[in-house]
Structures are given as C-alpha cells and as structure tokens.
C-alpha cells in the first residue's frame, strides 16, 4: 500500500535549510499544518517527505519596534491576542483574528498563511496593504520579498524551492482597516475583503478573496473621493465567480466595500 511520508523535524533553521537545499524537490515544509492536513486528508497531495518546522524555536516570536516582526511560526491566535500587535497594528490583529475558528487560529501560522497563498485567507490582503515584507532564507542567503510580490497567483508564490519564510516585517501605518464581506454564514470565507492603510499622504487599498492574488492598484488611489476609487477598483478587477457570489456581483460589492473602507479610514 501507499508508503507513509518521511517525517523530518530539524531543531535548527540551519539544519532545516540544509535539508531543504538537499531535498527541496521531495520535502514539503510544514508549519502549523492546517492546510496540508486538509489536503492530505483528501489525498490531494502525497508528499514523499514532510519537513516540520515545529521544533525550530527561532521561528517563533512577535516583536515590535519601528516595524512589527512576526516570526514565521507565530500562530494566528498569538498575533490576534498580542497586546503589542493590538496596540500598534490593530488591523493586523483583526485580520488574523477573523480567520476561521479559534481552533484553526491556534494552529495556523504567519509563515504558513503566506506560503499557502490561499486566495480567500484574510491576512495576506491586510499585510499587503500595510506594505509588509516576508523575509525568506535559504542556505544560500536571505532576501526580503514584499507580500504583494510574494503571492503570484492561486496557491502560488515567488518563493524558491530551497527558501523558507522566516519572518514577516510590518511597517506602521497611521490607520488601517480590514473589512470582511461575507454572503453566507458568519463562518464563511470572504466574498470580498478590503484592506486599506494610510501612511502620511499615501493610501493603499488592497482587495482580497476576489482573484488569485490580492488586488492592489496604487495608481487608482492617488486622487478622487472614496466612491470614485471604489468604482475604479471595481472596473480594474476581473473577479472570480464561486458559491459566494458571481463576478458581476463581486464587482458591485468591491465598489461599495472599497468606498466604505476608505470612509472608515478617514474617521
């Protein structure tokens, strides 16, 4: 019968990166494992080897300063409840706090949600709006990747097979909001999500859950009132259609929710 995957659980980052360099093609990095377990349960993947990051203490932690530093293995629930995050980056606490249930948030990690690049997850759009960067390490070195360049499409990232996200750095904003528009149960994933952040004269608006990757159009935010920007976003985005809403409906909601996010940002 089917062979069980090998379980690798290194206790240091160096060891993990060495293993990844050596076996990147067959080793699947595993953080909290919520996404991978769901795929494994449905037999959508059959990896030869699982590389667990759970024992690498250096990947945990939440630190504040000029920027917020979220360790890749920090759990959603830790981000949600961290007084430091709530105080300095309340919209980040909110975006992580509205993901699924407390159970999933107890398990899912900061690095995991970015590396999965699930189009309907809440945090990526918010991190993108705040101009956050993922720090990626490999045996060969380290680089910073803006979140909006990290996620390239449905479940696709610009990470190389030998790279791991080790940390996410989130700059401060003057104000930021996250709006999750659901069309069904409270437990549903968003039909349209809008993250918006204001820093000095710059306003960034990112729409999530409507396409393969967070939708950000800096040039559309430079002038015009909230309603106008909302309409521009609705025109610019080609949304998906699914059980949560058709493409045409999503366009209408994008116009409304972007406007509302900008109005909220102005308060």
């Amino acid at each position: 019968m089917r062979a069980a995957p090998e379980w690798l659980a290194p206790s240091s980052l160096e060891e993990a990166l060495a293993l990844l360099a050596e076996r990147g093609d067959e080793a699947l990095p595993l953080a909290g494992g919520t996404f991978l377990a769901a795929l494994l349960n449905q037999r959508l993947i059959e990896p030869a080897c699982l590389l667990s990051l759970a024992r690498i203490a250096a990947l945990g932690g939440i630190e504040g300063g000029e920027e917020l530093r979220l360790g890749a293995m920090a759990r959603h629930r830790d981000v949600e409840l961290s007084p430091l995050v709530r105080e300095g980056w309340p919209a980040v606490a909110r975006a992580f706090g509205v993901v699924a249930s407390p159970r999933v948030r107890n398990q899912a990690t900061v690095g995991g949600v970015l590396a999965d690049a699930d189009y309907a997850s809440d945090p990526p759009a918010m991190l993108c709006a705040l101009g956050a960067r993922a720090v990626a390490r490999s045996a060969a070195g380290v680089r910073e990747i803006p979140v909006e360049e990290l996620i390239t499409g449905y479940y696709e990232t610009s990470l190389r097979p030998d790279e791991l996200i080790v940390e996410v750095r989130v700059p401060r904003a003057d104000r930021a909001v996250y709006r999750k528009f659901r069309t069904r149960s409270h437990e549903d994933r968003p039909c349209v999500a809008v993250a918006a952040a204001r820093r000095g004269a710059e306003t960034r608006v990112v729409v999530g859950a409507v396409a393969g990757r967070p939708q950000h159009f800096p040039e559309l935010c430079r002038d015009g009132d909230a309603a106008e920007i909302g309409r521009r976003y609705a025109d610019a985005i080609e949304p998906i259609a699914d059980v949560r809403g058709s493409a045409a409906y999503r366009k209408r909601v994008i116009a409304v929710e972007v406007r509302r996010a900008l109005e909220e940002l102005a308060t």
């Binding site: 659980a9 494992g33 919520t34 377990a37 349960n41 759970a54 159970r103 107890n106 398990q107």
Partner: peptide, 16 residues
C-alpha cells in the same frame, strides 16, 4: 485541547 488550546484533531498531523 492541545496544551490547553482548542484544536481540530482532524487538522493536526499526529507527529505534531
């Protein structure tokens, strides 16, 4: 509960 935290046992790989 895993270390006191509610967890979906169906999403936690056993080795974790």
């Amino acid at each position: 509960l895993v270390d006191g935290r509610p967890t979906s046992a169906c999403l936690l790989l056993a080795p974790l």
